[in-house]
Amino acid sequence: MTEEIVASFDYQIEKDDFKIAGSASSHIKKILKQLGLPNPLVRRASIIAYELEINLVIHTVGGAMHLEVHPNCVVISTEDMGPGIEDVDQAMTEGYSTANDTAREMGFGAGMGLPNIRRCSDEFSIRSTFGTGTWIRSEIHVG
C-alpha cells in the first residue's frame, strides 16, 4: 500500500437505523465510480461496504466506517463501540448468525455477511474483543 491518498471519507453509522442504512455505501459507490475505477472493483467494494454498514446497524451499538482510496488499493474499514464478537471463527462461518427478528424481517441475518466480505476482499482482517468492540479492515487491489 502506498502512502498517497486519492480520497478519504468517514461515516458514522447508527444502530438499528434501517431507514438510512446503505446511504454511506451508496456514497462510497458513487465516489469510486467518479474516480473511474473499473466496474468489477466498484461492485466488490460496494458489496463490502454495504455488508459492513448493515453489520454495524444490526449487530453493534453504532460505529464508524472509513474509506481510503490509494493509487493501488481501496481500503474500507469499520470500528464499533461494541458489544464485540464472542467467537470470531464461528462468526466467519457461512450460515451462522446472531441477527434479531427486525434484521431478519429486512432480509438479513442469513449468516453470509462476514464470509461475503472476506470473499470480495484481496486482504481481510478482523479483530474483536468481546465486551469492547470489533475492528474490520478490507482491502481491494487496483489493477
Binding site: F18, K29, S46, I47, Y50, E105, G107, F108
Partner: peptide, 11 residues
Amino acid sequence: NPQVIRTAEMM
C-alpha cells in the same frame, strides 16, 4: 423495504 433497493443498487 428500502434495503431491497439499496441491495439492488450495490449489486
